[in-house]
């Protein structure tokens, strides 16, 4: 699939969702006549959207009357109004309490860690069983990695499929926002993905591929020739990055 064709697939989805302008719609409908894969995508999208159109939430009624809702809203507004304003006296009490904690806690902690005392035994007992804690941490690590991959996927799809035309330079596309988001995502990666952890070890090769692509996007100037994106798109294609992200996020979320 070429970059050019990936753009068609985006437009086919947008046609199914009914959000294309008239002139774009005519072009996509003409393309559908010639492209079997796009026509199949269009039919599948239409069927999915038909199922979604039957969602009871689309016609659901609020379970309370508007009068009741108004009463609740006014009560909430009153709560906000009577909420106590900031008082310096309370701040003083808070500071005094904080000073007390600073004075008392360190010696207490020292005592707790003195070997051979009964207190030390009590403190060492975990509040949450170790296995539950381990499962929570595992879950959290996998969720974070999946979220990172989701965000990277959104960004890579935008770069490869549908960048907007650059307003400043004719004939180029605008990837300024995507470059900025790539840099932001790379900075956040360390927080979102525990790279040393076993929990996401199976995702490591994919995370490396994604990082490489994000670095390339991050290095792009705001306005580039569409051809410059072709190399990024080919890399994604060669390594099946989007499909792997789909599979990996599913696996990570269980």
């Amino acid at each position: 699939m070429t970059l050019f064709h990936e753009r068609w697939r985006v437009r086919v989805s947008l046609l199914a969702a009914g959000v294309l302008e008239a002139h774009e719609e005519a072009a996509v409908r003409a393309h559908l006549q010639a492209c079997d894969a796009c026509r199949a995508d269009f039919e599948r999208s239409r069927r999915a959207l038909d199922v979604l159109a039957r969602d009871p939430a689309r016609t659901a009624d609020a379970p309370v009357s508007v009068e009741f809702l108004k009463t609740r809203v006014l009560a909430r507004l009153d709560e906000v109004v009577v909420a106590r304003p900031f008082r310096w006296g309370f701040a003083g009490v808070g500071l005094a309490a904080a000073a007390l904690v600073v004075a008392i806690v360190p010696p207490l902690v020292q005592r707790m860690h003195t070997p051979g005392t009964a207190t030390a035994v009590i403190v060492e007992q975990p509040l949450v069983p170790e296995d539950v804690m381990a499962r929570m941490e595992r879950r959290l690590a996998r969720d974070s990695a999946a979220r990172y991959l989701d965000e990277a996927q959104d960004l890579l799809v935008t770069v490869s499929a549908h960048p907007a035309d650059c307003e400043k330079e004719h004939g180029r596309v605008d990837v300024g926002e995507e470059a900025r988001r790539s840099r932001e995502l790379l900075e956040r990666r360390a927080l979102m993905v525990d790279l040393g952890g076993d929990e996401v070890s199976s995702a490591q090769p994919l995370l490396d591929d994604v990082e490489g692509l994000l670095r390339e996007v991050a290095a792009l100037p705001a306005c580039v020739h569409a051809d410059s994106l072709e190399a990024i798109h080919k890399q994604m294609e060669r390594r099946n990055v989007l499909m792997k992200i789909d599979l990996m996020t599913r696996e990570l979320r269980g």
């Binding site: 985006v10 947008l14 069927r47 038909d50 959104d154 799809v157 935008t158 549908h162 907007a164």
Partner: peptide, 25 residues
Amino acid sequence: MSLGTVKSSLHRAIARLRTRLGSAQ
């Protein structure tokens, strides 16, 4: 968000939903 991001994200959402709802159809 930029308009381009909205378009590509809507495309991805529909692609995912049609996979997930395939059996429902």
